[in-house]
Write a protein that binds this DNA or RNA. Structure first.
Length: 854
RNA sequence: GGGCGCUUAGCUCAGUUGGUUAGAGCACCGCCCUUACAAGGCGGGGGUCGGGGGUUCGAGUCCCUCAGCGCCCACCA
């Protein structure tokens, strides 16, 4: 094909032009006829490269942080596609869970009340004002709104991703709450249940009093909060006082024991005796436990059910009774815990919020004289649900768990087996697994999510038989137990004595997201496809969700398939604002990416993203985008020149000049390095090496051969330049294509029919005809050219200024190299007389033509 | 409390197995409208590599130690 170079080259409109064309030509369509791994012809890899794409949360908005990490993945996808592999690169939408619920509540000013009946024609308009009264609606109505809103959000997301140039197969999207996801989640759950790896238990768990749901260990975060030590007096045996420091005096009624360290000599006489709580007069045992810290407070702690997770440990390990007093709404319960029924103090706190109860208890203690000192303010870490606003409480509830504690060793071995990029991220996985203190709590008391596909029998007295749940056949999945009926029952028997009742809970968002490989790969629904793409090659994700998404995905795959879900994990860093804070929507420091794409082009934005090292937090840098845009423009211009020189069909018989051989050999090295880097998931290094070469190519090589290419040294010498320029450009465009897909495609299209993104990745073979070369020929010539430029700059004359004579004294070796590029050097520097002489020390003398020395 | 990472020019960062005068881009200064490119090109100034100690013929690059920053984990009365 004869190059068809536009008169004027420009980046304007490339995104629209090429994203439409790629779509029309199905450039990124996954070809599932390829088998998982098959040897390719002549060293090119064949087979499939599958990516476990992170499904972005559609209820949020995309910001530059997303663009950053998704670009990284896309460069890898493009690289492997060019290597000849079919890339399985679906896009998922995470529309599951609380963020969606919250967005729907705010967007439509509604709230879900599961007790309400469905209203078929309910269709609210988006809430206008800020504070609008929330309308209570039924669960089915609420879920309809969730679905409606997420569908709209997905469209916006897809548009942006296309604009950014993600080479996703848009025919293969999935959602984490759609029917497929439900089926996969429920099937996997039922299989865990069969294997005894999922179980139900009534146990104290961390509870968010606002969201009214249990929360798992993985969703916790500590926040430093002001608090106060209150020293209070318990009555000990023999009339002796026991002094105890507590930050939660309001829980006094829930006290079931006091505890000291077994080695604490101060309290040894009291151990095994009984202490009496102030205000309530409840007798509790004085016990010992190694977790009691003699250094903390008075060395004696009161154990309450439950003030914190240590209480839970003590309660469990010391086999204490429960005396729960906090309700699911975060208030003190109405009904008193056992043992305090008759205490007048209970009436003072019942039904109160935590803070009010605390204040009242302190007053009461003060009045009774049991408050031994005024509260001493401290700051201490308090556990929060990561999306929550109030401290977590611990309440006892029935929940589903997946066993992880018993499998820690196996899971650690999986972490060992996985290839981590960067490798030190493995440490985070290990510290998480080693720190597990409970099985994975997978049930949530929410509405929008995947329900547990279970019902329970109701006995004749109406009590629930949790022991043997009613399980649907896998072929029925997905089921919604709140509307579907278990086999052998009828709807009329729902919630009736002798009938059945649905499991009310939904799965944790990670309960579904942990199955993205299975969802995306159509596990069981399409065994042929699943066999081709699973286990996957790579999981790209951010480091802060190693403990959640990465961990839980390994758990599911380990239990279900007895293998890793992928061989490699590519962990991306965060995007930081100039103050080094993580960009996030909630902090309001994250900008929407579209304006940046419009200003610098998708390629410019991608360039910035791809400059961020794998796993390294990177500062948001508009300057880098600007640099990326300039690079793209430079590629346009350089390509325009090269293609106007080089014929479409390269004459293969031409003998390369020494300078051209040196340039091409150097480029072959860059190809090798970029290839190795991409194989090792280091897109940033690949880009850096390619770019560095490209600038040398433009500034030195093109300048050195320009005149020769115009024919200054005859047709044969010109042909060598043409061929070297043409080959270099072809290789460079393909090296740039993963990072700068738009400009690479634009330029490629000037001389090629097919997409650059399906062109073969450059290989050493393409340089086979170059022959032996001395790399230093190019470097040495470029050095002298730089000297000439320097002299012209010093003389404040144009680069086109004539030079009468350049005298180079240098070692015989280097002089020999310069002779090989003598003609190019003379023309590039406009040197009339180039004198090359051997000498011990290098020196360069430049005599500019008199006419130019004004 | 444990762990991981980072600390190189004003800024953002490269420096792969230790080896010639430590690199790039941005910013800054100067020059040049050169037929691929003036939203460009060419050239220049500027760091002794967080502090200290050690190994070595030789260390930004390995070891020890200290400091600061960030993150992950932790049973936080």
């Amino acid at each position: 094909m004869t190059p068809n170079v536009p008169e004027k080259v420009s980046l304007e409109g490339l995104e629209d032009k090429w994203s439409a064309r790629w779509d029309a030509d199905a450039v990124y369509k996954f070809n599932r006829s390829v088998s998982r791994a098959e040897p390719g012809p002549s060293g090119r890899e064949r087979g499939i490269f599958s990516i476990d794409t992170p499904p972005p949360t559609v209820s949020g908005s995309l910001h530059v942080g997303h663009v950053f990490s998704y670009t990284h993945t896309d460069t890898l996808a493009r690289f492997h596609r060019m290597r000849g592999r079919e890339v399985f690169y679906p896009m998922g939408w995470d529309d599951n869970g609380l963020p969606t619920e919250r967005r729907v509540q705010n967007y439509f000013a509604v709230r879900c009340d599961p007790s309400l009946p469905y209203e078929p024609n309910f269709s609210p308009t988006p809430a206008a004002g800020k504070k609008q009264e929330q309308v209570a609606i039924s669960r089915p109505n609420f879920i309809e709104l969730c679905t409606r809103l997420t569908a709209e959000d997905e469209k916006v997301f897809e548009e942006l991703w296309r604009h950014l140039g993600l080479s996703v197969d848009w025919g293969m999207t999935y959602s984490t709450v759609g029917e497929r996801a439900q089926r996969v989640s429920q099937r996997s759950f039922l299989r865990l249940l069969q294997k005894g790896l999922a179980y139900q238990a009534e146990a104290p768990t961390l509870w968010d009093v606002d969201f009214q749901t249990a929360v798992a260990q993985a969703e916790l975060e500590d926040r430093e909060l002001p608090g106060a030590y209150h020293r209070i007096r318990f009555n000990g045996p023999d009339g002796r006082d026991i002094e105890i420091d507590t930050t939660r005096p309001e829980l006094l009624a829930a006290c079931v024991a006091v505890v000291a360290h077994p080695d604490d000599a101060r309290y040894r006489p009291l151990v095994g005796k009984v202490a009496t709580t102030p205000l309530y007069g409840v007798e509790v045992p004085f016990l010992t436990h190694p977790l009691a810290d003699p250094e903390k407070g008075t060395g004696v702690a009161m154990i309450c059910t439950f003030g914190d997770v240590t209480d839970v440990v003590w309660w469990r390990e010391l086999h204490l009774p429960a005396r729960a007093m906090i309700g699911r709404d975060g208030r003190i319960r109405q009904d008193p815990p056992p043992g305090v029924e008759d205490a007048p103090a209970w009436a003072e706190v019942r039904g109160k919020k935590i803070n009010a109860a605390r204040a009242r208890v302190v007053e009461l203690l003060r009045e009774s004289g049991d408050l031994l000192s005024e509260p001493r303010p401290i700051t201490h870490p308090v556990k929060f649900y990561e999306k929550g606003d109030r401290p977590l409480e611990i309440v006892t509830s029935r929940q589903w768990f997946i066993r992880t504690l018993d499998h820690r060793e196996e899971l650690l071995a999986r972490g060992e087996e996985l290839r981590w990029h960067p490798s030190h991220m493995k440490a985070r996985y290990e510290s998480w697994v080693n720190g597990l203190n409970s099985d994975w709590l997978v049930s949530r008391q929410r509405f929008f999510g995947v329900p547990f596909p279970l019902w329970y029998r109701l006995s004749d007295d109406g009590s629930v038989d949790y022991g043997s749940p009613l399980i649907p056949d896998e072929a029925r999945l997905p089921v919604d137990p709140s509307t579907d009926v278990p086999d052998g029952f009828s709807e009329g028997e729902r919630d009736k004595p002798g009938g059945f009742t649905a499991d009310p809970d939904i799965m944790d968002t990670w309960g579904t997201s942990s199955l993205t490989p299975q969802i995306a790969g159509h596990w069981e629904d399409d065994p042929d496809l699943f066999g081709r793409v699973f286990p996957m090659d790579v999981r790209p994700q951010a480091h802060e969700i190693i403990r959640t998404w990465l961990f839980s995905t390994i758990v599911r795959s380990h239990f279900e398939h007895d293998c890793l879900p992928w061989t490699d994990a590519a962990i991306s860093g965060w995007v930081l604002d100039p103050d080094r804070k993580k960009l996030s929507k909630s902090k309001g420091n994250a900008s929407t990416p579209l304006p940046w794409i419009e200003q610098y082009g998708a390629d410019g934005v991608r360039y910035w993203a791809a400059s961020g090292r794998p796993g390294v937090d990177t500062v948001f840098d508009e300057g880098q985008m600007k640099v990326g845009r300039r690079l793209a423009i430079k590629i346009l211009n350089a390509s325009k020149f090269v293609l106007s020189m080089a014929p479409g069909e390269l004459a293969a018989a031409v003998e390369f000049t020494a300078l051209d051989r040196a340039l091409l050999t150097r480029l072959a090295g860059v190809v090798e390095e970029a290839t190795t880097s991409f194989e090792g998931y280091d897109y940033a290094r690949a880009l850096e090496r390619t770019e560095a070469f490209f600038w040398v190519f433009c500034d030195d090589y093109v300048e050195l051969v320009k005149a020769r290419a115009y024919g200054g040294q005859g047709p044969e010498a010109a042909a060598s330049a043409h061929r070297a320029l043409g080959l270099s450009l072809s290789v460079l465009l393909r090296l740039f294509a993963p990072v700068l897909p738009f400009v690479a495609e634009e330029v490629w299209s000037w001389s090629q029919e097919r997409s650059v993104h399906r062109a073969p990745w450059p290989s050493a073979q393409e340089f086979e005809g170059v022959g032996e070369s001395d790399l230093a020929v190019f470097a040495t010539a470029a050095e002298v050219l730089a000297d000439v430029r320097k002299a012209k700059t010093a003389a404040q004359v144009s680069m086109r200024a004539e030079v009468d004579r350049v005298t180079v004294l240098d070692t015989s070796e280097r002089i020999a190299r310069l002779r090989l590029a003598e003609a190019d050097l003379k023309e590039a520097g406009r040197v009339t007389d180039l004198v090359l002489e051997e000498a011990r020390e290098r020196s360069v003398e430049i005599v500019l033509a008199a006419v130019n020395q004004a």
